[in-house]
Amino acid sequence: MQRIIDPMPDSSVPERLRQRHLLAISDLSEVEITLLLDCADSYVEQSRQPDKKSSQLRGRTVINLFFENSTRTRTSFEVAGKRLGADTVNMSVGSSSIKKGETLIDTALTLNAMHPDVLIVRHPASGAVELLSQKVSAAVINGGDGSHEHPTQALLDALTIRRRVGRLAGLKVAICGDIMHSRVARSNIHLLNIMGAQVRAIAPPTLLPPAIERLGVAVFHDMRAGLEGADIVMMLRLQLERMQGSFVPSTREYYHLYGLDRDKLSVANPEALIMHPGPMNRGVEIDSDVADDINRSVILDQVELGVAVRMACLDQLTRVLDAEGGD
């Protein structure tokens, strides 16, 4: 069993974020990421108490605006908001009406008129959340935009690693799967590079975007080579519709070459942690036996810490709002 380490807050960490929105990890600095992770650490215990509620966000309105189906992320944000005492409202916009272009801006303006303090937005188009953020006065958190970024997922992955291993710098992290279409992969690649980890991308060439190595990753098409000595193995979800001859020939071939099982894992660091953003396709990208290994798999830690990270993001962004209001 790994020891859980709560690092002491670093004195160089700033008091506040510089920006009002959390749109992309690539906008953040090392100290800002550390600020958010330290803040999240402080919320882990709160969530484990019988009375989980505090009042930092009392009176604040947080709207979950999801233009794409989501259960996990939306629920995680909703729980986070409620634990901080905010009024949280969920709004789902059907995917059929998204194509109607104007919906995004119109919805943003409509919601803005209700004076929300924080908007959490997920949208299937890359850049959509940033576009929306330009039209509203609320703080905006990117809950995932297309294949671009999913910053809170990368933060919760980082917190999970930091609490288990004690650091991020110097770790060998292998990200495996559909990197081409993955906003989780992009956010993690940025965050891990900023924090000094060594990042590897493992995927068939058809699931890697062009010039991915320019984002600071070593590319492997052979999973064993990529997993050699890895401290962290991050599996990505593969959309089943991409596996029927378009990007890879078949599910069974993918599992054979890129599914994480004990055999492939044997070349990694014996204490390597296994992560997955969920929901998992067992038997497609990950073997159940590995996914459920209580010593190796931190998949449920990720879910727990996801709430703490989102509490931290809400807390820190509303502090920026407070500071702006005081100016």
């Binding site: 690539s26 890359s126 850049g127 935009d145 297309g146 294949s147 671009h148 970024e149 906003r183 992009r186 975007p209 062009p210 010039a211 991915i212 320019r214 984002l215």
Partner: peptide, 15 residues
């Protein structure tokens, strides 16, 4: 255009 910028933006590229 396909390449580093499209990859960073999460936009699919035209080779």
């Amino acid at each position: 255009n396909a390449g580093e910028i499209a990859t960073r933006l999460g936009l699919s590229g035209i080779p």
